[in-house]
Design a protein around this nucleic acid. Structure first.
Lengths: 124, 124
DNA sequence: CCATTGCATACTCCTTCGGTTATATAACGC
DNA sequence: GCGTTATATAACCGAAGGAGTATGCAATGG
């Protein structure tokens, strides 16, 4: 798998689950497969993707492979999120960012009612 | 597309690009397609996914459709990230979380050298 | 009215990728 | 050495979904 976006890796619930499990500490392939109800090859495959994208590191101990979570990619998600935070954080110290955003908004038009998947509108 | 994870939506660079573009304010389908070099149907399609997953809302103005970014899903990403923040933030007020995590870690084993995609090891 | 504009949707093609099964490899304990 | 354990990888399959093309449809403005 050629990872062109960090989110691609987290897109699959099963890979998300592996990451979440690894929050508790390093785990072997067998433990992860067992714990998440995956076949061993499947676990290995997903761990391969996680490894190639930097989400995990591996240590060999005898025939065991200990997989451990690495901060970098997650931190990258955090950084990606940064320019959006003002949207739900109304803290004063974010006001500067907000003003920058508004300047860029100037050219956009205005309008009435809003339509979203979260309300009833979805299936008209 | 049946969205089973918020990350699935952001997985595609083209959808990421749309979201980023919408940071500057509401845009019509045509503006987005034009600005990102997409065919109109393709833009519509991706906007459909973004809409169904709550990333954007739509307002109709004549034949125009103004798409606007919504905070909720992004906020959800932020919340998902929360339990991982201690990994790169060593602030004291995160120590509590860290201790919780360590308690859960107790059962995991330890080991030597580390192997990651970000270093030379990748292609042995 | 009618041509045009702006957008959504249906349909098709084709690649990608997740999952299974089978096999290779390597280190272990006896 | 040998069976066993732990993992990786290859081969295969099927479904999903992204992109393109064509079309439908509504509102517009002359």
């Amino acid at each position: 798998m050629v990872v062109s976006s960090i989110f691609e890796v987290l897109a699959l619930p099963v890979r998300q689950a592996i990451v979440e499990r690894l929050r508790e500490g390093p785990r072997t392939v067998g433990e992860l497969a067992e714990g998440l109800g995956l076949s061993q090859p499947l676990a290995s495959k997903h761990l391969r993707v996680l490894r190639d994208s930097g989400f995990v590191s591996v240590r060999a101990e005898a025939q065991r492979r200990w997989y451990e979570l690495r901060p970098e990619p997650l931190r990258e998600v955090d950084r990606w999120l940064e320019p959006y935070r003002w949207m739900w954080e109304s803290r004063l110290d974010r006001l500067g960012d907000r003003l920058d955003a508004m300047a860029a908004e100037e050219d956009a038009a205005a309008a009435p009612a809003t339509e979203t998947a979260t309300d009833e509108e979805k299936d008209r």
